Amino acid sequence: MNRLGFIFSSLLFALALASSMLFVVDQRQFGVVYALGQIKDVILEPGLNFKLPPPFQNVSYIDKRLLTLNSTDNEPMLTLEKQRVVIDWYVRWRISEPTEYIRNVGTNEAAGASQLNRVVRNSFQEQVNKRTVKDLLSSKREALMADVKREVLAQVRGAKPWGVDVVDVRITRVDYVDAITESVYRRMEAERKRVANELRSTGAAEGEKIRADADRQREVTVANAYREAQKIKGEGDAEATRVYAESFGRDPQFAKFYRSLDAYRSSFNKKGDVVVIDPSSSEFFNAMRGNTAPAASKK
């Protein structure tokens, strides 16, 4: 029984020892083997590898993928015309030489990101100081980003290389600081209100002009129509008078009788009309009394 226990314990020890000596490097990582705190070997290719058991050798991993560093502060920068602006940016970078990176930067990605953030920030400040706000918002922004990238690469590839490669530097936002932004918005609002009021005033003036012109044309049209109507009415009255005169001239007795009937019709137009007159002494009712009869028309 003791023999079996010893064999079992030996197997467990051998497995533990083998597991401490074997390690796998992923395709997304570098494997760094340390011997008593010093870099012994750097594994660049993925696969199964061997090392001495701890504490003689240890292994750590560093990401070899393309990393993104975003700006983390909102500290304003001064432009050429002394305007305070806030710039948001990001950097795409990767660790290319693990040995140099560990010796000159740190043992993890956070150390490189921290130092790279400082370098990029200083480079942006230097380049922004040389440019106006208009340059930051125009196509010259591309030149700014190219200059920052060049300066950052010169810094990380200097006397003590960082072992990193900066792939791209980009600006995502350029804005004034909050106090200036509020002032700019107020000026823009005032300008838009001024333009709106000017447009409304111009529109009101044009509207009054159109209404006045329409009223003038209406008055002219009504006057012309009234003139034409009066002209036509006058011509009709003249024609009617001529016809009446021609007709009544043929038989004056009938004309007198017809006019008497027309006078009766006008006088007794309504049921309540009352005329107080002496029929014996008035000639108004001669036609009704038969004193005036229409003569026979002679042909």
Rank of each mutant, 00 (worst) to 15 (best):
V220N: 13
E142M: 07
R150K: 14
E198Q: 14
R118Y: 11
S183W: 01
Y176C: 02
R157P: 06
Q217K: 15
M145E: 10
D213S: 13
R211V: 15
R141N: 07
E142P: 01
V133G: 02
V195R: 09
G163C: 04
A143E: 11
K193C: 00
Y185L: 10
A190Y: 09
E142H: 07
D168V: 01
S139F: 02
I210W: 14
E142F: 07
L199C: 05
R211I: 15
D168W: 10
L137M: 11
K149S: 03
V120R: 01
W162N: 08
G203C: 07
L144I: 09
E206C: 00
Y176I: 04
K134N: 06
R192W: 05
E219S: 10
V133Y: 01
R170I: 10
T202I: 06
K209V: 08
L144C: 05
K209A: 12
Q127V: 01
G207V: 04
R173L: 10
Q155G: 02
N129P: 08
D215E: 15
Y185D: 11
A196D: 03
R131Q: 05
V169S: 07
G158H: 07
N197E: 15
Q155H: 15
L136P: 05
Y185F: 05
E151Q: 13
V128M: 07
V195N: 07
V133L: 11
F124S: 01
F124Q: 09
A205G: 11
D178E: 15
G163E: 01
V120F: 04
A212C: 00
L153V: 15
D168S: 05
G163Q: 00
N122R: 10
K130C: 07
S183I: 10
Y185T: 08
